[in-house]
Design a protein around this nucleic acid. Structure first.
Lengths: 204, 204
DNA sequence: TAAAAGTTTTTTGTGCAATACAATTTTTTA
DNA sequence: TAAAAAATTGTATTGCACAAAAAACTTTTA
């Protein structure tokens, strides 16, 4: 039995996050104040603080809300495997970028990443780090499938490889959102070049 | 002929940066205010703003001050080459970490990185990005030497490889400073595992 | 040495994040 | 339906970043 009280809380939570997202996308992080969010969500500013603690806490909560959606899209990818490791890696990264930009703008993502670095061990910071771990895990799974089909060296440590390639993806994603000019295609080219250069590095 | 006026400016610059660094290391970013920095540097707070614009501007200026030192240490590394690509990569990353921690603390580095992401296209933000490019360049040079000695596949694109491995190093560095617990040895292990997993990934 | 040029400082003010607390409203429970 | 419990709200306050203008000071120059 769900309390009326709990339902109200849930409803407020939703309204606050929705208002926050709208304003962040429309006006950016600086121009979005707790006050204006509270106003649009029809609660007081104090309530926003009670729910999310700080402004960046609110930001990270907003992002972790979209996590399940991203993980679902990643599941889809598992079902349509690629032939080569280059294609696999490229497709994996593309899903993340698409999802990211369908949810927030580049400038806001910069704030999100900055917040996650600074508030690394707050409640919301941890759940953000958790997502990273799960994504790396997913990449490992995808690589396992590839290995089964012979697209990968036999004596590869997939846990390490998945984690490592995820880190590389993350670094390029950061470059992507850090420059308003960088296109989706440009990052994809980078990542493919990266993979190819790495594969060619094995000493003869 | 250097003006008295210019010398005074230079002296103030130095005193501000020195005071900033001392307080940041001792008390962290939040507890360090423009006011207290100005006080210790014996100038007014407005002067600090005149010199560095914003608090994060000051932070990034502080870091770019230490750049030349890091690049010098990297030059040293060029003279003492390693046998394998794993050792090369590991040594490169170690120089960066050593230098970083000899200059600032992990919590402050988190602020630095966050600031560089948010203020990506301010004056100081750009000079921070510039350092990254130079470091990637240096890594490429080190790899060239390695290739000459046969420690690397012959048909490797070194520009791409250098950039890519630098990105990976950067990602692991971020993990390093993001966790107060993570030791130097732990990161080194990570990076070596990374390289080994990558090298083993070539399909048979 | 006196005027001119260049800087710093003082002063004043704005905006926003974050916190504290009492007052008030709403829901629950008995 | 009334008391108890829980949550929200208004209000006041603090602290700091940052901005703008005029006053005060110091160096330069003629």
């Amino acid at each position: 039995m769900t309390n009326l009280r709990e339902r109200q809380k849930e409803s407020r939570r939703r309204k606050i996050l929705q208002a926050a997202r709208e304003q962040l996308v429309a006006n950016g992080f600086e121009a979005t104040t707790i006050e204006t969010i509270a106003e649009e969500a029809e609660v007081s500013a104090v309530t926003v603080y009670n729910y999310y603690g700080t402004k960046t806490g609110l930001l990270l909560a907003l992002v972790s809300e979209s996590d399940t959606l991203l993980l679902e899209r990643m599941q889809e990818l598992l079902k349509t495997p690629s032939e080569t490791i280059v294609d696999t890696f490229s497709a994996f990264a593309e899903v993340i970028r698409q999802h990211a930009l369908s949810f927030l703008t580049k400038p806001v993502w910069r704030q999100v990443i900055a917040a996650s670095i600074i508030e690394g061990d707050s409640q919301f910071g941890r759940s953000y780090a958790q997502l990273d771990r799960e994504l790396a895990r997913q990449l490992t799974k995808i690589l396992e499938k590839l290995k089964d089909r012979g697209g990968l060296g036999a004596d590869t440590n997939l846990d390490v490889l998945g984690d490592c390639l995820f880190q590389l993806q993350n670094a390029r994603f950061l470059q992507f959102v850090s420059s308003d000019d960088m296109t989706n295609e440009a990052v994809d080219r980078y990542l493919r070049e990266d993979m190819e250069a790495l594969l060619a590095a094995c000493p003869d």
